[in-house]
Design a protein around this nucleic acid. Structure first.
Lengths: 229, 229
DNA sequence: TGCAAGTAAATTGTATCCAATTGACGTAAA
DNA sequence: TTTACGTCAATTGGATACAATTTACTTGCA
């Protein structure tokens, strides 16, 4: 994601992004430019650029003259993001069944071992690793554009789970990750897709069923849309 | 695409984007911040923000301390973008066969009439309209995230055609657009997808077969990747 | 007490300024 | 002639200053 060029801007961008993934920054939280800037020891200019990038990814929303906030995806948005995620990830599986780099399975198995290593600890790390498994799958297709889009929807799903799901402990069942690898390796594309589809359905279902009550802010902002300028 | 909030930044962003779509700004062209700023009567700050957004979409690339350039997708990138475009647009068709708003067909037919109105003139307008047909299809799914991704790959395809295709006159055959609408309206999803797939294949093929010789810059930039910092 | 208006504080929008880096040109030495 | 070096112009990287806008508080009036 980060191209490692604009060091300062990219550094702030990466930090904010990671903080959002790990749900340290929660949906609806304000992100005042100078507060963030002081925190990282940079000027507002840098923070602004980072926020622009995050807004493009749908991770933050900005209101004119009001500032930036961590995004609070509505239920409709959540539905749409999940739909796109399933489209993309099913296709990732289909591609991987046709072509996968030599080291692919090693990388995947190794990643799952890492996930198992932190099993039980419902900390931010396990949340991040679960998402990164799906990004790794997409990267193995060799299609960088596809991988970028998967990365975007995965992280937005993380935001959705943070808003709507009761427990984030196991957004992804590690077992199912293993099953997906097995299915790809067996070359049975249809079965692999079925498992992935079921896996994502489970994640989505957890968000739908166990959704928390809306926060005050998101409730009011919903009504506010009808008044606003 | 543009949210109409940050008026100045968004205005510059929209103008640059449109200029790239219509191939007035050609791949490899420089986009110096103050030149662009003077042109539009705004300061570099505004232009910078617009360029950041365009870079996120893959329409421009920036080199540290060197500036921004209109992107020159490599052949590999072009291949990847087309692959993602087919994935997304096939799925758009599949969705539209299941659900399409009441006014959908009217909007589509109306758009095709516009395209026919400028037929023959190989100007920038026909190029833009051809792309917007595909974006309109995506928007009719009601899935904004999906529509945004389609919009991104469509415009990047416009960049690719500008680089590699001999004639941009008819990136899309208007007849085929009508056929696609017919197929969706008939409810035959498989046929509709087949037509869309063929349609995109034709566009892609035109880029592959009639590709122009690489520019010096894009050739050297390819080798340069092995040296760079 | 409750509401309204006005004022002050906080925050973003934009422009400008200085520093750092890059590329080009020209000059000199081998 | 070619290469190496040094200087200069052009451009971006980043910080700061000022203007505009919004929000919150306070004051005054009914």
């Amino acid at each position: 994601m980060s191209d490692g060029k604009n060091t300062l801007t990219t550094a702030v961008y990466d930090l904010l992004r990671k903080a959002i993934i790990e749900q340290a920054l929660k949906p609806g939280m304000r992100l005042p430019e100078d507060t963030v800037g002081e925190q990282f020891g940079v000027s507002r200019t840098i923070v602004r650029h980072a926020l622009v990038r995050l807004e493009n990814e749908g991770l933050v929303v900005t209101q004119r003259n009001r500032g930036a906030f961590v995004a609070e995806p509505s239920k409709e948005e959540a539905q749409q993001i999940f739909e796109v995620r399933r489209i993309l990830e099913n296709e990732v599986i289909r591609i991987l069944c046709n072509r996968i780099p030599d080291t692919g399975y090693d990388q995947l198995r190794s990643h799952v071992r890492n996930e198992e290593g932190v099993r039980g600890k419902d900390g931010p790390v396990s949340i991040r690793l679960a998402g990164e498994f799906h990004v790794l799958l997409a990267e193995l297709t060799g299609n960088e554009i596809l991988a970028r889009y998967v990365s975007e929807v995965v992280i937005r799903c993380s935001l959705i789970m943070s808003l709507y799901a009761r427990s984030h402990s196991s957004d992804c069942a590690v077992d199912e990750h293993s099953q997906i690898i097995d299915a790809i390796q067996s070359g049975d594309a249809e079965r692999a897709i079925a498992i992935m589809d079921h896996h994502l359905g489970a994640v989505q279902g957890r968000a739908e069923l166990a959704r928390q009550p809306d926060s005050i802010r998101s409730i009011l902002s919903h009504y506010g849309k009808e008044l606003a300028q």
